[in-house]
Design a protein around this nucleic acid. Structure first.
Lengths: 274, 274
DNA sequence: CGATGAAATTGGTCCGACAATCTGATGATT
DNA sequence: AATCATCAGATTGTCGGACCAATTTCATCG
């Protein structure tokens, strides 16, 4: 029991203390509930993930060094490294050799973990757009039903930001605000699973196809779509929101895939079933 | 450069050899492409994940010990442990102290990683059903369009297996075959992203609500739903498949949430904006 | 034959050391 | 003055060994 003694360490580590062993006090519906001995690295993952989710660790910020985290949590450096690997698989942090550990996003996207497991070569981009369309269309409809005023304000602001970026011809800024816009719509759905899934799908696509909107023409129509989506969500019209989002993604899909090398048109019966 | 020399090790390690450093030979569209140094643990993850995905390592099978994997890959035990952590976050394997490392699923589900990062307490089950419904309804429609004969045979077999399990009153078997059925439908969609997302959502739900179908009445109607879904996919009727799947999930959702403690009815405006 | 307990196996954790890489400062060169 | 080369420090990446904790295996005993 040397792993959980909260030794009063030195330095700045006020935010990094390992909780007491926290036995499962939740409602136990039946006896013989599956006991789960919490590994040390899991508690480290929980705490750092909570700090990121609650905004106490911002995107881009650097974490303490592995050794400092180890002494702060009262665990060895190896445990910290294992926790960092899991956090990296969730897309929350990134470790750079010689530099440190940095926060990437504030909501988990399992992109990197998937690219390690699914396959190194590019899957068909068509499938990814199909997936995104399903998720984002429904998210837009839900957002039209449930959005709060604050969430609508976020969507409006992001939509205007994309328009401004296009006016300035800054395609990189457009891409960033485009992500903000779609993320805000997904968040306004009130369903965290949609939010995570949409962020994951978009991140995955940008890993595979990093050269999305290199033509100013396609982004011009994108800002019109954004305005339509925003208006429908503002009017609390789910059908219109779904229609506008579907139109947006289908159009974007066409613009992107037209610029791709000739591959896998659509072809029924994928999956190599024996 | 001691990490990548494929030393001719001893023992059984014919399937576990570290690939040569594999520089990115893909199409480079612009100069100054971002270089990515592949860490040792990533290559271990790739190889083991590939073995699981291709079926060379079956579900339930035990991997070699960490020490054996280390000598087989030519890396230290610490690297193997970091790789196992990532594979565990993907839901592919599970390490049991004193016993070994076992394969859990053959397709990645990020359940465990999410439960570490999102929150330990149970989210609203309603949101999870909403997410599942969106995914599985579209997957059923896609399956009706693209399914192969072999995939249809899988779906039919799984549907009949659930019916047989209900006849025998074996609810546990019903749950297992129910997972097989929905997984087969998702796979028949021809879109691997749907397959992974559906499996993840279902696994997540079963982690949160492990006591789903404890009433024989609700599962009886479930097998009727399965037959309707199967028939629609067999007839290549996307609309009917989507309708049948929606009815199935909405019904199941009602049956489950009715048995839940009074919590969070639906309530618009979640997410704590501002 | 079943129960018991010791021994072996295996993952979990800790520690120390070195290598590879990045960062920033310093100084030399143009 | 600006640019480049070099160096020292810091930090992650990897290695090897050691010990602990949980599990499994198996000989022993009742």
């Amino acid at each position: 029991m040397s792993t959980t003694n909260a030794k009063s360490h030195s330095g700045n580590g006020s935010r990094f203390d390992l909780d007491p062993p926290r036995e499962p006090v939740s409602a136990e519906r039946s006896p013989y509930q599956a006991i789960t001995v919490s590994r040390s690295y899991e508690q480290v993952v929980r705490q750092i993930a909570a700090l990121i989710r609650t905004g106490q660790l911002r995107s881009g910020e650097r974490l303490p060094t592995e050794r400092e985290l180890g002494s702060a949590f009262g665990v060895s450096r190896g445990v910290v490294r294992e926790a960092v690997k899991v956090l990296g698989a969730l897309g929350l942090v990134e470790a750079r050799q010689g530099s440190g550990i940095y926060v990437l996003h504030d909501i988990p996207t399992v992109t990197r973990a998937f690219t390690l497991s699914v396959s190194p070569d590019a899957e068909s981009v068509e499938r990814l757009f199909e997936f995104r369309r399903t998720l984002e269309v429904e998210a837009a409809a839900l957002a039209a039903r449930r959005r709060t005023e604050a969430q609508l304000a976020e969507i409006v602001a992001a939509s205007e930001a994309t328009a401004r970026a296009v006016e300035l011809g800054d395609l990189e800024a457009f891409g960033a605000f485009d992500n903000v816009f779609h993320g805000a719509v997904a968040r306004a759905s009130g369903n965290p699973y949609f939010e995570v899934a949409v962020a994951t799908a978009r991140q995955m696509q940008q890993d595979v196809v990093p050269f999305i909107s290199d033509r100013i023409g396609s982004v011009r129509s994108a800002i019109l779509h954004h305005q339509n989506i925003t208006a429908a969500i503002g009017a609390r019209d789910p059908e219109a929101a779904a229609r506008a989002m579907a139109e947006h993604i289908v159009y974007t899909s066409g613009a992107v895939t037209a610029r791709l090398p000739e591959e896998t048109p659509i072809e029924a019966g994928v999956g190599g079933g024996a």
